[in-house]
Computed example of a mutant assay.
Amino acid sequence: MKKRAVELVVISDVHLGTYGCHAKELHRYLSTIKPKTLVLNGDIVDIWQFRKSYFPKSHLKVVKKILDLATKGTKVYYLTGNHDEMLRKFSEAHFGNFSIADKLLLDLDGKKAWIFHGDVFDASVHHAKWIAKLGGIGYDYLILMNRLVNWCLARMGRDPYSFSKKIKASVKKAVRFISDFEQTAADIALEKGYDYVICGHIHEPNIVRKSDKRGETMYLNSGDWIENLTALEYNRKRWKLYQYSDDPLLKEVDYFELEDQLGRELAQYSIFLKN
Score class of each variant (00 low, 15 high):
residue 228 N to G: 07
residue 195 D to Q: 08
residue 221 N to Y: 01
residue 218 M to K: 09
residue 219 Y to C: 08
residue 243 Q to M: 13
residue 192 K to N: 14
residue 231 A to M: 05
residue 173 K to R: 14
residue 185 A to F: 02
residue 218 M to L: 14
residue 187 D to H: 05
residue 238 R to F: 12
residue 216 E to H: 13
residue 196 Y to H: 11
residue 204 E to Q: 13
residue 245 S to Q: 15
residue 197 V to E: 00
residue 236 R to Q: 14
residue 211 S to D: 14
residue 224 D to S: 09
residue 200 G to P: 01
residue 212 D to M: 09
residue 207 I to H: 09
residue 233 E to C: 10
residue 223 G to A: 03
residue 181 F to W: 00
residue 193 G to D: 11
residue 244 Y to E: 06
residue 182 E to Y: 07
residue 204 E to R: 09
residue 183 Q to F: 07
residue 204 E to G: 01
residue 177 F to Y: 12
residue 220 L to Q: 02
residue 244 Y to H: 14
residue 232 L to W: 01
residue 187 D to F: 07
residue 178 I to C: 09
residue 218 M to Q: 12
residue 207 I to T: 12
residue 234 Y to A: 00
residue 216 E to F: 10
residue 200 G to T: 00
residue 192 K to W: 13
residue 186 A to T: 06
residue 207 I to D: 04
residue 198 I to W: 04
residue 179 S to Q: 15
residue 199 C to L: 08
residue 233 E to D: 02
residue 212 D to I: 10
residue 215 G to V: 07
residue 188 I to D: 09
residue 211 S to E: 15
residue 229 L to D: 04
residue 202 I to K: 03
residue 218 M to P: 02
residue 224 D to W: 08
residue 189 A to S: 13
residue 231 A to F: 02
residue 212 D to S: 06
residue 184 T to C: 06
residue 238 R to K: 15
residue 237 K to P: 07
residue 231 A to W: 03
residue 193 G to T: 10
residue 190 L to D: 05
residue 204 E to S: 14
residue 218 M to I: 15
residue 202 I to T: 01
residue 239 W to P: 05
residue 204 E to H: 14
residue 182 E to K: 13
residue 179 S to P: 03
residue 185 A to T: 08
residue 237 K to V: 11
residue 230 T to A: 00
residue 198 I to N: 01
residue 228 N to E: 15
residue 226 I to G: 05
residue 176 R to T: 12
residue 226 I to P: 04
residue 227 E to T: 15
residue 234 Y to T: 04
residue 177 F to Q: 05
residue 223 G to S: 06
residue 243 Q to W: 12
residue 224 D to M: 08
residue 247 D to M: 11
residue 209 R to Q: 13
residue 189 A to R: 05
residue 192 K to G: 09
residue 222 S to D: 03
residue 215 G to K: 08
residue 223 G to L: 02
residue 185 A to L: 07
residue 208 V to M: 13
residue 216 E to A: 13
residue 220 L to S: 03
residue 176 R to E: 15
residue 217 T to A: 07
residue 189 A to K: 07
residue 223 G to E: 01
residue 218 M to A: 05
residue 176 R to P: 03
residue 209 R to F: 12
residue 220 L to K: 05
residue 175 V to H: 02
residue 175 V to N: 02
residue 246 D to E: 15
residue 181 F to N: 03
residue 178 I to M: 07
residue 198 I to Q: 07
residue 229 L to R: 08
residue 220 L to I: 10
residue 203 H to Y: 04
residue 247 D to I: 06
residue 224 D to L: 11
residue 192 K to Q: 15
residue 243 Q to N: 14
residue 195 D to S: 11
residue 239 W to E: 03
residue 242 Y to V: 04
residue 185 A to C: 13
residue 181 F to L: 06
residue 180 D to K: 10
residue 187 D to R: 08
residue 197 V to R: 03
residue 210 K to L: 08
residue 183 Q to I: 08
residue 210 K to S: 12
residue 197 V to N: 00
residue 207 I to N: 09
residue 172 K to W: 04
residue 197 V to I: 12
residue 207 I to C: 07
residue 208 V to L: 14
residue 215 G to P: 01
residue 226 I to N: 06
residue 219 Y to N: 01
residue 190 L to M: 09
residue 190 L to V: 10
residue 185 A to V: 06
residue 235 N to E: 14
residue 193 G to N: 11
residue 173 K to I: 12
residue 197 V to S: 00
residue 214 R to E: 03
residue 235 N to G: 09
residue 178 I to S: 10
residue 182 E to L: 00
